[in-house]
Amino acid sequence: MASIYKKFTNADSSADHQQTPKNKQRIFNILLEFSIIYIYIYYRHRHLIKDLEILLPQSKKDSKLDTKKNLDVLNELAELNNCNNVLFFEARRHEDLYLWASRAPSGPSIKFHVLNIHTMSELKLTGNCLKGSRPILSFDSNFDSSLPYQLVKTLFEQIFSVPIGTRKSKPFFDHVMSFSIIDDKVWVRNYQISEKDPETGSDTNQLTTLVEIGPRFVLNVIRIFEGSFNGRTLFENPEFNTPTAVKSAIKRLKSAKYNNRVTSDTRQKMKEMKHSLPQDPLDNVFK
């Protein structure tokens, strides 16, 4: 059931190698799952995973993971592939997508609920950028307002930045990945930096415009764990409601419409019976 996608980045800072600390990159992806269930993965989730893989040249996609319970396996996999960050996508009920962002093997790990997914293949997102070019990460200063969000920010800085000299990466900057906090959720957008006049094609150094490339999605923080896919809970979002609870509440409200009608009908009947007029003795006088 769970469709799984992993991304590992290796960011060993080896001080003895050179004077300045450096980021090293390894690309590695894992996607493991039951083979039958594979076709039932909601296509949009699959496209989102594909888009992120394209945008992050240091990532490596693996096959689907065939377990839902024992997520510690992921730490072993990360170690095996010499990676220190994991993005793990978990699809449930064919429609809900959860994202684990973790720093393997020591932690922390954060579990998100992914909402409002729009992939790059949507035609209204008209931007384009080099495959493997480095992004500029843009964070809303709301991230600094609370500690949990600060942790999210530092983790995302690690995961979504492309280190210098990564294999398959290009040494230019032509897109911005922006993370903003609106309505207590993290909104992710990816824009192309366009410095050319769209009509004449000439360089306009003063005027920078942005064109959206995609994907776009919203992350709702559920929990922060101390370890990687384990450990005690450091933070839990009190505002989070599981999508199943929301769905069942909607169903309840919808059924309330029918129930309301039935009860009001019976009440009306009761009322009529109670308030029926007494027989008028003079009713038939003029007939």
Partner: peptide, 14 residues
């Protein structure tokens, strides 16, 4: 230059 991360000057308030 390793991270290329920029934090906005003003927080988003809607």
């Amino acid at each position: 230059i390793e991270r290329c991360s920029i934090t906005s000057s003003t927080p988003i308030t809607l």
